[in-house]
Design a protein around this nucleic acid. Structure first.
Lengths: 231, 231
DNA sequence: ATTTAATGGTGTAAATTTTACACAGTATCT
DNA sequence: AGATACTGTGTAAAATTTACACCATTAAAT
């Protein structure tokens, strides 16, 4: 009983929720669509998966084509498969998130015609998005909010060297609540994966803060130990 | 610029990792395939999504057709999209898990020809499975292990009335470590969502233990409060 | 030179939670 | 009556979490 796979007009797509942090605010990357359906609408960067690429590869490619961004560490978080989520046919979409340092230098420039432009938008006061992208964003935002507690994702959003106040304000932005300064510092430093640098912040008109770095190797060591000790 | 969706020979499928608990052991549901490729192999229950059904609906239907089980609360956990995971073409699969009480009465009987039989198998010493199903299982097992800590999924695996010892042994089976009896009870009861019944265990040849019930309404109340109080 | 404005950096005590640990009680079976 | 097998219970020490306020430092303004 050998059965060929059916041929359906079914399409996989990828949608990306890319978070950035700038001026104490959490932002995501949106595009302005230049293609029907939802032409001229704002949307998450997303497009169709080719037949000969894995979905992880597709996610990288699609993000690059629509925004010019490359080499992000993207992570799948949910698949949306309602029948009528796309007005033109059956499209199941796998949603990915990534976190990056917003960098004024790095220009956002779509490589394809499908997006007219790409830009950062604060996660608060998001406009209505094309398709079910508002729902996709919400789901992704909830995921990273949860993951912030057990994965070192905060450091992907900050510059390589950062102050403890910057780190705290990122946590506050994602979790949407105030944290206690002394307790926050005590706890963060107690983990032992932050490396204090000899440098200080520059260009501020008040006392400059010490800079820190995230030590990925120490983090891995600590994390592995925790898994192995297993009391 | 209106563009029709491309027609690909691309297929969505669903694979199910269904956990059960019996005789102090955690088990999953396997089928014996009756169809190429991987005919006669053991595999997770899985099949192809139709064009006019959502992936959530498909998951329920497919599990029913291959095992005879219905009305489980299934939850998507990961999507597998490597190019060559299926020998006959491009198949992207969305993996779901569910947890159920294994019930001797309830017969496992495939409704379609695609599975020869369905049966429970302990999660330890799993044989090699068809396709990338071993990897899918591992991913799913890791997910529920993590979720056990913040979602009331344990109670879906136990009979409606259970003893604290049964509950503990379930935690031990999933987490794969011994827990302290007194501390476990103290903590579980402190949550306040277990209802102590007037009944006792029956049919044991030693002192019978008290039976408890999971109180879903109290759980929801507590859980919501936690979210709202937000200190 | 002094003042002002803005943020940096620091410690302690109380409360809560987590951990480690052992034995008498009870039901059943023989 | 005794053996067997599991139930059910408390406490003290350790660790973690919480609440809380002020002086120090720098650059800019006067």
């Amino acid at each position: 009983m050998e059965v060929a796979l059916p041929t359906f007009n079914s399409v996989f797509s990828i949608d990306c929720v890319i978070f950035g942090f700038e001026a104490g605010e959490l932002k995501i990357l949106l595009i302005e669509r230049n293609q029907e359906p939802f032409k001229d609408w704002l949307a998450l960067p997303g497009y169709i998966v080719e037949q000969d690429e894995s979905i992880d590869d597709a996610a990288e490619r699609i993000l690059y084509e629509l925004t010019g961004l490359r080499d992000l560490h993207m992570q799948q978080f949910h698949t949306f498969g309602e029948v009528n989520r796309h007005p033109q046919g059956r499209v199941i979409t796998v949603a990915y998130y990534a976190l990056i340092r917003i960098n004024g230098q790095k220009e956002l420039r779509p490589v394809t015609q499908y997006a007219r432009k790409a830009f950062w938008h604060p996660v608060n006061e998001l406009p209505k998005l094309a398709f079910d992208h508002s729902e996709i964003f919400e789901t992704g935002f909830n995921k990273i909010r949860r993951r912030l507690n057990y994965q070192p994702i905060a450091f992907e959003l900050l510059p390589e060297k950062f102050t403890l106040t910057q780190l705290q304000s990122l946590y506050e932005a994602v979790l949407n609540k105030k944290l206690d300064k002394r307790n926050f510092r005590k706890k963060m430093l107690s983990y032992g994966f932050l490396k204090e640098l000899d440098e200080k912040q520059k260009g501020v008109s008040y006392r400059a803060a010490k800079l820190y770095k995230f030590d990925r190797r120490k983090y891995a060591k600590i994390f592995n130990n925790e898994l192995n000790l297993d009391k």
